[in-house]
Design a protein around this nucleic acid. Structure first.
Lengths: 344, 344
DNA sequence: TTGTAGGCGTTATCAA
DNA sequence: TTGATAACGCCTACAA
């Protein structure tokens, strides 16, 4: 970028006017003579003028940039969210700075500091797994930085959230199993300190309760969110329920379900004939495996769009209400939950 | 962001020193009294000082920001590229502005203008499908804007490129079929005005030539890059080769192969017993379908990393050589190409 | 409709 | 080691 840059000053000299006239002409301001305007614009173009948003941002205290913090950039869910954000932001004339917390609390802080220093107009954030301290979010509120949580948020601290109702979705999933006649339903839970883990477990429990099925401790195993952990969790579950094994399993997510299926097969059992299983998330692989997985589809792209839209509203109107936006999930029924009406 | 911001000026007043001392202290500059430094840093922290990178960028003409132009943000390949870029950029202390050309020439221009105005330190771009005019790239060169093409680039205009050798990969793929004994090999080509279409077709032809197999016009059908187009292309191919149908097909990419497989089945034929098929790209579904697809893996994440690395080198050293970096693809052999040694 | 002065928050440069 | 001053490129506010 070295050939001495063309600035409005350069142009002003060239056309023999003040820099203000040039500035106004370039911004298509109304109070400028049409001829002047045309002339300035022509000269600017001829000289290869490139406006400097940095300078503009400095004086206007507005960058038209949105900061996005993603906890796991390798996850297709978040990649889709980004796509949704980009679309809305683009339409509204905003740009995106992408940062990655890699599920690390510390790194999330760093992302936030950077974004603050870059003076983004607003921030879209999904809380990293290891975050335990909300101080920085409160600080953000104090600074009046417009912000929206997407997918993983914190309720009731004064920041809008956009996500799905994990409790309800898990409830629907569990209820679907009950509707098929299953009574002995186990749960391969996620980490309970995470809202997704806790919510889905709650949904599972709610469904049982509603249908007056007693929840059994031995039917609930806390595992992780990954395939391997699902596998181990399922092994443990089978092991501790030998006398009275479950007939169906609600896994905390699809990867966990994949692992569980391996464990089930390994135990010489069939899905869904011996044990039915449902997942959560609609992983791209879910419909392609041997026994396609019943699961719940989360509208990732929509989450991105709605979150970006809400954020821009917060940016552009101080009075925009803080609210929790809940998007609908969709139950995807496939073979893994079985269709039989056997009562057991 | 309204509570009157604290700036180095505010801090200067507070500690009773000049803004320069504060600036130096905050930047951990060496020529500052240690006590002064400590004191300033403490006060800054206490006052909640947030450095303004915008102002800094303005005076230093450096933003520590990389602009990325993605042609199709919904494509998992590019999502993985972004992931690679992010990783390298983060490690080097750069941030990313993400823009999306949506395969549109006009929109790509817009992305570039924005990035220029935002004074990014460098640009990573993958050429949009509809780009026909390279003027703007040449202009970028003239402006000495550091730049690297990734995946889809333009050779010999003075900009580094990072990608795979599509010709060679297609050649290897075709040769693999030949090695298995197939002689009657057809090609479901992509759009030939796109380099990926042209290159892969060339690789296919090269392999045939090397093995002295005559290329037949009726064995090459130009279709699109999507599943549906693969389906139609395959139907056309089967139709025009009724008397002498191919025994194997090299599809331009995996989605195209998926479509082709449908068409093959529909014609009452089996894969690979009647017609073997190979794809290109290693779509996530390829290993999960009924007859897993032999294909070529493109190192998307690596492409992102290498491109970002090269760009940062260009940014940080004017003398960094312009070069074309070619990454290796990996042949993934699965069932769809068959193992039989039948000669036909 | 156009121009002048001043400042946005920081750093470079030179002087003390 | 510290400070004064002038940029960086643009816009706001006011004046002409």
């Amino acid at each position: 970028m070295s050939p001495k840059r063309v600035t409005i000053k350069t142009i002003a000299k060239e056309v023999g006017m003040s820099i203000m006239t040039v500035s106004r002409a370039l911004n298509n301001n109304s109070n400028v003579n049409d001829q002047t305007k045309t002339k300035v614009q022509q000269v600017a173009k001829k000289m290869g003028y490139i406006p400097n948003h940095i300078a503009k941002s400095l004086v206007q205290r507005k960058t038209f940039t949105i900061g996005v913090v993603v906890p796991e950039i390798a996850h297709s869910f978040f990649q889709e969210v980004i796509r949704g954000i980009e679309e809305i932001a683009y339409d509204a004339g905003y740009h995106i700075i992408l940062t990655h917390s890699a599920e690390s609390f510390q790194r999330e802080q760093l992302c936030l500091e950077t974004l603050l220093s870059k003076r983004v107009d607003g921030i879209l954030l999904s809380v990293a797994e290891t975050v335990t301290d909300f101080k920085i979010y409160k600080e953000l509120i104090r600074l009046k930085m417009p912000m929206v949580f997407y997918d993983r948020g914190i309720n009731d601290i004064g920041i809008s959230t956009v996500g799905i109702d994990g409790t309800k979705a898990a409830e629907i999933l569990t209820e679907h199993l009950i509707g098929l006649g299953y009574m002995k339903i186990a749960h391969l839970a996620g980490p309970l300190h995470l809202s997704i883990g806790a919510n889905r477990r709650q949904g599972y429990l709610n469904a049982l309760k509603r249908h007056k099925i007693r929840a059994k401790k031995s039917y609930i195993v806390e595992a992780g969110l990954k395939e391997k952990q699902g596998y181990e969790g399922m092994k443990k579950l089978l092991n501790q329920t030998k006398k009275n094994p479950p007939r169906a399993v609600v896994a905390v997510n699809d990867p966990s379900a994949f692992g569980a299926i391996d464990a089930i097969k390994e135990a010489g059992l069939r899905v869904p004939e011996d044990i039915a299983i449902v997942g959560f998330a609609d992983d791209i692989r879910s419909q392609l495996i041997e026994v396609p997985l019943t699961t719940v589809r989360q509208p990732a792209y929509e989450v991105g769009k709605v979150a970006a839209d809400k954020l821009i509203k917060h940016i552009e109107s101080k009075t925009e209400a803080v609210e929790d936006l809940v998007l609908n999930t969709e139950l995807i029924v496939r073979k893994s939950c079985g269709w039989s009406k056997k009562k057991n």
